[in-house]
Nucleic acid binder design. Structure first.
Lengths: 268, 268
DNA sequence: AGCTTTTAACACTGGACACCGTGATCTATC
DNA sequence: GATAGATCACGGTGTCCAGTGTTAAAAGCT
């Protein structure tokens, strides 16, 4: 991947490319990067500060080095950007299950957020969620009744957790809930963080029908804590990027599998 | 208040002015408003849609009418602009009661919001509230643990209400709660909206000590629903703008009255 | 000290987005 | 069905801010 003389990138893409360079070469100097991307030294330094803040690289006088492996792959914000098309595809398919008048429950995942953006068109609707980002979004939607799930605020996820939250969920009953795990393996859904698990389980238990939203990269990953069996969900939606054999395996283990085709690339 | 030929306002201020007009006249047509504010019909319609979304007015073919009384006063953006100095004075005094380590509960009043702004300096703290504005504010404060009270979202107050909320409150116990009514008369605190009352009562019941925050304009007003006796609060804080005889009366009826002097005007 | 690398401060700019108007189309009401 | 009112769709315009560069000061290294 040669960058020299290429078109000028936005900051996000450039930082991604910088990270790749560092990952590939091990280390590099700020001056070399400035030359490579045709931007000023100052801009490179700002990019590196951002990457360091995200925990991806280490800055030291005279250059930067890569962090020990694995950190890059697990980084959230990068994954979020690259899986956008998949999430939109899944969200579009999920939206088809929602009918006006329903009460739907959404967890604190970015996939659910993508779904939330599409709900305004399906009003009247009741939306229940513990995700502050979704709450702020839906609060501005006319025709949508919003029930927020309170609880202990978690900065990392920007959502509300804990007993207060599970209690609130238990006191409700939604028609449909959408949950997204961080990994799916061997007939089970997993999540890497312990305190998220009870929330998703409670949602599962407080909805008449439940849907699991999974992008295909999660099929090849693992996470520590088991959330539930796939059979516990009435439906599983996965995007079409998954390997055929993975889809076959998945189909065996789910009550109803739904493969969402990628949407035509947006005009954006 | 004459608007004709005045300077062109931003959309927020114009909408506020439109709301005032409607409140004052009872009803009016879109065409009249367009003439009054020197903007196109389309813009007026957009403004009215927004006001309707906020629940302030009702649109019907041929014009708009005001909602039943009291609603306008409840509107957040309206409340926020009034009595700024008084609220700051009260909030400053209230902040003196908060000590690091405490769990404090705040209701969905702009006075409580003013208090919330001062809490970052008192970290570590636990803040409990059902007010979305406060939630968003406190979520960004390092060192403050935030517990959000969920419930049915209310556009008018930008807060969460209903059984879900009162249940959540009942399951907690704070050291200190701050509540602000919309009127205080004859030894009782009142609020003009029925569905707010159970929330404030629940907060009162779930805190070891409770404080009522009142700006002096509320002493001369009345509202329909009784919240609680003033004796039920451990302390009442009022700003110094009240009439001396009103303060004397109040002193008779409260366990502990606190008169907050107005602060020197801020540089902002 | 003398050099290089990094940070700080300030001004500029281009693109995004909010805001508004115009004309066409849709929809209630009589 | 006629008409006034409301909405839709599109394009223009101004504002705001993220992103960037430049210059100067600060901080490390040898």
């Amino acid at each position: 991947m040669s960058e020299g003389g290429g078109t000028r990138l936005g900051p996000a893409r450039r930082q991604e490319a910088i990270a790749e360079q560092i990952l590939a070469r091990g280390d590099i100097t700020a001056g070399q990067l400035a030359e490579l991307f045709q931007v000023s030294l100052m801009t490179i330094h700002r990019d590196l500060n951002e990457l360091e803040r995200q925990g991806l690289v280490r800055k030291l006088r005279g250059g930067v080095t890569a962090q020990p492996s694995g950190v890059f792959e697990s980084n959230v914000s990068f994954r979020e950007r690259s899986m956008r098309a998949e999430k939109e595809a899944i969200a579009a398919r999920a939206a088809e299950l929602v009918e006006p008048g329903m009460a739907v429950m959404l967890d604190d995942s970015t996939t659910s957020l993508a779904l939330a953006r599409r709900l305004e068109a399906l009003a009247p609707l009741t939306v229940v969620t513990n995700f502050l980002t979704t709450i702020e979004l839906v609060a501005g939607m006319p025709g949508i009744r919003l029930i927020a799930l309170g609880g202990d605020y978690d900065v990392l996820h920007n959502s509300f957790l804990g007993v207060t939250c599970t209690d609130a969920i238990a006191a409700l009953q939604a028609d449909l809930c959408f949950v997204s795990p961080s990994a799916v393996t061997g007939g089970h859904a997993y999540h890497q963080e312990q305190h998220i698990v009870p929330i998703k389980r409670a949602m599962l238990g407080s909805a008449t029908r439940s849907v699991l939203l999974v992008d295909h990269t999660k099929l090849t990953r693992t996470a520590l804590y088991r959330v539930a069996r796939l059979q516990a969900f009435d439906r599983v939606i996965v995007d079409a990027g998954a390997a055929p054999e993975a889809l076959q395996d998945l189909d065996q283990l789910t009550r109803s599998l739904d493969v969402a085709a990628l949407l035509p690339p947006e005009a954006s």
